[in-house]
Design a protein around this nucleic acid. Sequence first.
RNA 1: UCCCCGAUAGCUCAAUAGGUAGAGCGAGCGGCUGUUAACCGCUAGGUCCUAGGUUCGAGCCCUAGUCGGGGAGCCA
Length: 494
Amino acid sequence: MCYLARRAIQHAGFSKHRNFTDSAFQNTDEIMQRLKVAQALKSTSVGIEVDVRGWIRTKRESKQGFAFLELNDGSSMGNLQVIVDGSVPGFADINKQLTTGSSVRVTGELKESPAAGQRVEVHAKTLELYGTADAEKFPLQKKRHSFEFLREIAHLRPRTNTFGAIFRVRNALSRAIHNFFQSRGFLYVHSPIITTSDAEGAGAMFHVTTLDMVKRKLVDGQVDYTEDFFGKKASLTVSGQLEGEIFATSLGDCYTFGPTFRAENSNTTRHLAEFWMIEPEMPFYDLQDNMNLAESFIREILTEVLAACPEDMAFFNERIDNTVMATLRNIIDNDFLRLSYTEAVEILMTCGEKFDYPVEWGTDLQSEHERYLTEKKFGKPIILYDYPRQIKSFYMRVNEDGKTVRAMDVLVPRVGEIIGGSQREERLDVLLERMQECGLNPEDYWWYVDLRRYGSVPHSGFGLGLERVMLLLTGMANIRDVIPFPRTPKNADF
RNA sequence: UCCCCGAUAGCUCAAUAGGUAGAGCGAGCGGCUGUUAACCGCUAGGUCCUAGGUUCGAGCCCUAGUCGGGGAGCCA
């Protein structure tokens, strides 16, 4: 039997099964509405029969023979209160098993709640237990847990209030990012995850190989990658920028949005070995255009998430960090301050502040310097631009002064650097000169150099770390807690 | 990778000057209650991270390691 025919039969069987055996949809005059908890909480249709399914967060019991269940299915911060009493068939038998973490299906009437705390509630008519959760063993308790502990049970932490909110916000943020670019006609480009180009030396790379690590042959003490799957040394990408430039200089404004990998041994609250990066790349944009886009971008995606997740954001502001909303409003409502690197250095040298590291023109700014500028001195986002050429990458366009390049960093309070970008060097001779200066072999970047050989145009772009924006939005302190499954040195469980 | 701090009950922590462990929450049982961080009472629960060492005696002191946290560097 061919695959499609088998599919058709299975599908028919499935439909038939649903129609004749699923009691929620059978032989009932009232319309039984299958609702998510979020829908039920917002519903104005008091009196309707509903069917809700989810996990019990807590149960409060009365010896009068009824119980209050707090039901959550991840669709919202709030729980749906369900009242179960002796009239519900089988309640007495399964009551003991209705523990925190167990999963149930409830049907009943949606009613206005007589008590404070919730607008509506469900009076159960049927109750079905899907799966139990042994109260002695289930790790999530009816109490607060440390984020460190929850990280050890990353498979269960999405069932908590905080992580439910985090991942709903992460979803809303991803959507807002796509909306921002799509509404402006940007093309979404899928840059490769496996690459054989050394990118721009953005960081140490993870190797991708099928070679036997023990038995592999060494030629002159070196691994012979011609035997490897790709016939040469391959790695996980550290950036999609170079590929982005290919599409920007052919199809126009574009962006990448995908996972990125850095094998740096970084142990901080702001770094991951695997993180998600957004990298727009625009032809005919100079650095000013680039900064303008970056600023609108930050402002608009934050605005959209605030509008999409009001309950979750209120939770973060109340329980995680009570300055979150004020910080976000400050970013949304104010223009970003633009400061050249040279101006920033002057401010830092004359401000009278004591720093652990000295400030001098020509060296990169330390975190303490950036923090001082964005948090203490100006108290708002800052875009620094025109950095010394010797501390920046080869692809950044050299300014007329010959000393600086058209690079820009967006710094925000609390998180620090959230965007790094530049106008790209479009002049072939200057690019080759810069590659030599940075010790790179142009032959390794032949296709990148080619873009300057054929129809070269001014162009610009930037990179934004999704998790850094998440830190900003949620007020969470550790980047490991804003990605579903964090990968850091010595940690890739789950 | 470097610097600092930590690891004790399921979780969060306490244990005075080295004298072989306590609380809160959670859990179980009972009481009370249209309850909602519920409340009141009782009960159970611990190779004090691992391996060495000092000592009559180590949760506590020493050494090494593992894991976790904070900061730095690298950056997104």
